[in-house]
């Protein structure tokens, strides 16, 4: 029997991913570290402020984790919520677990705690990078109903690796926000296929915005997490420069594309509309050599020929 990651609560996800009986929570619900800002707004405050942090093991390796509960305020980050994640990450710098696991499901900053939420997201970003600089891989999993957006969309890309499911969505401004500000002609948030072609798991995988795509099951996420733990951490200037090159190529190649389909066509997919119908294995097989990073690899000889021109010059 496969368990859907998408349908699960944060607690069910973490329980499903960790080795049996290895779950240990820091500041659990009984500690009642609730948001101090919601009562004034007549809003109920969850016992754990919508995030579970702690330690456990996966395939025998110690991991620290944070799991956001999308069901509570869309997983949005408030003061306490953010500080729990920061505390866990800073502890990882001190204690060196084999990896940090971030199960993200969030719209970003909790508007009810606007300023505190924004600062908290910034602190999370810096703490993620501190953990990586200390040699601890930070692995993000995205596959919940609310996707991963706002400042946490930025934070997720500060991590070492992102695992996403086809149902997962990753971006900065949500479709509704853009539609509200720019109008429905710019971005129709109710056009689910369009949203999927813009921020959906398969598009992100092809673009190189995530490392692994998995079917929506706890087992598949778990396998991918183990692989990412084994990959270790590569926090280096060289890696950053490679990323810079990829991102520069992306703007050049796809900057004038109007739709995800145009990008996919550019990547060599003769029938972009078939992508949506492929199951995960079929898609990964077909995507061999048809991801943006593969194009870059194919061009790498050309790159070297550019000689002394440093890859980061604009």
């Amino acid at each position: 029997m496969t368990h859907s990651y998408y349908e699960s609560s944060a607690r069910a996800r973490i329980a499903g991913l960790l080795d049996a009986d290895s779950f240990h929570e820091w500041l659990p619900a009984a500690d009642r570290l609730t948001s101090p800002h919601l009562a004034a707004l007549e809003q109920s405050a969850a016992f754990d402020d919508g995030v579970i942090v702690g330690r456990g093991s996966i395939a025998g390796k110690q991991v620290f984790f944070a799991a956001q509960e999308g069901g509570f305020m869309g997983g949005a980050v408030g003061e306490v919520h953010g500080a729990k994640i920061v505390g866990m990450l800073e502890r990882a710098v001190r204690d060196h677990p084999a990896a940090v696991l971030l199960l993200l499901e969030t719209g970003g900053v909790r508007l009810q705690e606007a300023n505190a939420g924004l600062i908290a997201v910034s602190e999370v970003m810096r703490a993620i990078l501190s953990a990586r600089a200390a040699g601890v891989p930070v692995i993000v999993a995205i596959g919940g109903q609310y996707g991963c957006f706002g400042g946490m969309g930025i934070a997720s890309r500060c991590a070492s690796a992102i695992i996403i499911s086809e149902e997962g969505r990753l971006g900065l401004s949500g479709p509704e926000v853009i539609e509200t500000v720019r109008g429905v002609e710019e971005y129709d948030s109710r056009d689910r296929a369009l949203v999927w072609r813009t921020v959906g798991g398969k598009h992100r995988y092809l673009l190189g915005e995530c490392d692994t795509i998995v079917p929506d099951s706890m087992e598949a996420f778990q396998r991918a997490i183990i692989a990412c733990i084994n990959n270790g951490e590569d926090w280096s200037l060289e890696a950053l420069e490679r990323e810079h090159q990829l991102l520069g190529d992306r703007v050049q190649r796809f900057g004038s594309c109007k739709d995800g389909r145009d990008i996919w066509r550019e990547l060599g997919w003769a029938d972009p509309d078939a992508i949506a119908m492929m199951d995960n294995d079929e898609f990964i097989a077909a995507a061999q050599g048809r991801r943006a990073k593969d194009l870059e690899c194919a061009d790498s000889s050309a790159l070297e020929k550019r000689g002394d021109k440093s890859p980061h010059s604009i």
Binding site: P28, A29, A30, A46, F47, D48, G71
Partner: peptide
């Protein structure tokens, strides 16, 4: 042993037993 069940989301509730 202390248990928490449910999610504080619209139309739902969380229950803590201690």
């Amino acid at each position: 042993v202390t248990a928490i069940v449910g999610v504080l989301g619209s139309g739902n509730l969380e229950v803590l037993v201690e």
